[in-house]
Design a protein around this nucleic acid. Structure first.
Length: 333
DNA sequence: AACGTCGGCGTTAGGTACGC
DNA sequence: GCGTACCTAACGCCGACGTT
């Protein structure tokens, strides 16, 4: 079997020493052309592949990166994981992807595991990791490993945060709808993370700035269950039928809202305008298509990985980076 | 220049020595 | 005989160093 073939087997077959084989594999100099060709031929014939575990024993480079996400099934960061993994892979890294849940203690345990696995870099997907427990775990278990956090910040000499300006993005959306004459705004959010808090702040400050003569309120749906968002939407329209602008902290929640509105015969956007956040693919294909605030997931994911690779190369990187968020207007407004 | 030799990376299984 | 403590070899590979 190919995985049982070692450089010693190759060396024996080629009539050279193991270190000559190692030099060939790693493309090091001081190997005769013919010897190199012969070794490469035997490597190919035997389907030899390097044992990365043994290699990392010597080099202290695992060529592994860790990606932590609260739950790959539901959050929009799933798409971010795709970009992050792809970028790591392009650069020769194998990724360990863990579902941590939202409990900081559990998240810390996964940080410890990444330390045990000797990963060379870590990406935390989402502001759900922006907590002191995770920060301490990084200090203890990954003190010399560069860590990036997408859509959040954590203090630490080896931690690099990349965020989109969701605060500003929500403000822009409030301005847009206020400008269209909407008067009664509701912001519906799932459990409050630092990122969701920034969205809420943007909503409230946007209302102060652009919402003269308007009403506004924020509702937190603690369960995170999609049916509860449908129910909340129905309740709002029942109790306050004058509501004419609904904001949701994520696109898929907004789509749940659209579903509920459709089923109760409320017209979007004539009666109520609906705004989501993430600018996901679902925003394009739902009916009506959803106006959404683009928090630049692709860009933040890519910047996170590239920052880590730059640090690993010995370069310097800003510990905090922020890029603008834009409103992408579609039929729901 | 073109090789080979050997120590060591971190961990563990297996062996040996010792006291009870 | 049993439990404990310590030692050694082994895994696959790299890289410093030695030899021709």
């Amino acid at each position: 079997m190919a995985q049982d073939t070692t450089i010693y087997d190759i060396a024996a077959k080629a009539g050279v020493s193991a270190s000559t084989v190692s030099r060939v594999i790693n493309n090091y100099p001081y190997v005769n052309k013919e010897t190199r060709a012969k070794v490469l031929k035997i490597i190919s014939e035997n389907n030899y592949i390097q044992n990365e575990s043994a290699r990392s024993l010597v080099t202290q480079n695992s060529k592994m990166a860790g990606i932590l996400i609260a739950d790959v099934r539901t959050t929009h960061h799933t798409e971010g994981v795709y970009y992050v993994e792809h970028e790591f892979s392009k650069n020769g890294y194998c990724c360990l992807i863990y579902n941590t849940g939202t409990d900081p203690e559990d998240q810390a345990k996964y940080i410890q595991q990444l330390g045990q696995r000797k990963v060379e870099a870590v990406v935390l997907m989402g502001s759900v990791f922006q907590n002191v427990t995770v920060q301490n775990a990084i200090m203890v278990y990954l003190p010399n490993t560069p860590v990036a956090i997408c859509n959040g910040y954590l203090d630490g000499p080896n931690i690099y945060g990349v965020t989109a300006d969701e605060y500003g993005g929500v403000m822009k959306a409030v301005k847009l709808l206020a400008g269209k004459g909407r008067k009664h705004f509701v912001f519906i959010t799932n459990p409050i993370t630092p990122s969701n808090q920034a969205k809420i702040d943007g909503f409230n400050d946007g209302m102060k700035l652009y919402g003269e003569g308007c009403t506004s309120k924020v509702i937190e749906v603690k369960s995170g269950d999609i049916h509860d968002f449908e129910e909340t939407t129905r309740n709002i329209m029942d109790e306050e039928p004058e509501t004419d602008a609904l904001f949701y902290s994520e696109d898929f929640l907004a789509i749940a809202g659209l579903h509920a509105l459709h089923n109760t015969g409320i017209e979007v956007p004539r009666q109520v305008a609906v705004v989501g956040l993430n600018n996901s693919r679902y925003a394009e294909i739902c009916n009506p298509s959803l106006t959404s605030i683009d928090n630049m997931l692709y860009d933040t994911s890519l910047i996170a990985v590239r920052n880590l690779l730059e640090v690993l190369r010995g370069g310097r990187v800003n510990h905090r980076m922020s890029i603008g968020a834009e409103v992408v207007e579609r039929s729901s407004t």
